[in-house]
């Protein structure tokens, strides 16, 4: 356990970055069942809808978790159902399957509990750029922000909460068959 606080912060950030890069590989290699194993059983996965609102009314810019419509507002049961649907081979929206690349950047550890040197829970902010190409010319670039809570378990980290802010109000993609 490092005693130098700068070194401890670097090591923690390195661990978190590795977690995200492994996660991105699982998603882009379509190893969705293994991706599910990175989520806690009580994971919250929420993607609000963005609205165009007047400056100063930012409180209504995103739909509210637990009350309003959203792109996603679910837990592990539904996420597992999505993975099962993909695996059927007859989910036509993903048959043939998309090619995706998840680029995860701007990773910042905002908070570590109880402390950086012995963190068991972290709040992390990051950006994603997901490129999706399917069939001949079906191409989407979905960009946004993620606010995560990760918790330490025996073997490493797990995702306990993810809020996904897509930087679009009208979704310019025909579906959201992918994970962020």
């Amino acid at each position: 356990m490092p005693t130098d606080p700068t070194l401890a912060a670097l090591l923690l950030e390195h661990e978190i970055r590795q977690f995200y890069f492994v996660e991105a590989d699982l998603l882009d290699e379509r190893r969705f069942a293994e991706w599910l194993d990175l989520l806690t059983d009580d994971v919250r996965y929420f993607a609000p809808i963005a609205r165009n609102i007047r400056r100063g009314e930012e409180a209504s810019e995103l739909t509210r978790e637990g009350f309003d419509a959203a792109w996603f507002d679910e837990g592990k049961v539904t996420l597992r159902q999505r993975v099962e649907q993909l695996a059927t081979g007859i989910h036509w929206a993903e048959e043939p399957q998309s090619r995706t690349s998840h680029l995860v950047t701007n990773i910042r550890v905002l908070e570590a509990l109880p402390e950086v040197a012995a963190a068991v829970e972290v709040r992390v902010r990051s950006r994603f750029l997901v490129y999706r190409n399917r069939l001949a010319d079906e191409t989407d670039i979905l960009v946004g922000k993620r606010s995560d809570t990760l918790v330490r378990v025996d073997a490493g980290w797990k995702l306990a909460r993810r809020e996904i802010q897509l930087d679009q109000s009208v979704l310019l993609a025909k579906n959201l068959t992918l994970f962020f």
Partner: peptide, 16 residues
């Protein structure tokens, strides 16, 4: 939300 909309597990196949 799991049925309809762009993330709807039913609507997705319609849209395809």
């Amino acid at each position: 939300l799991r049925y309809s909309g762009p993330a709807g597990m039913t609507e997705q196949d319609d849209m395809e």
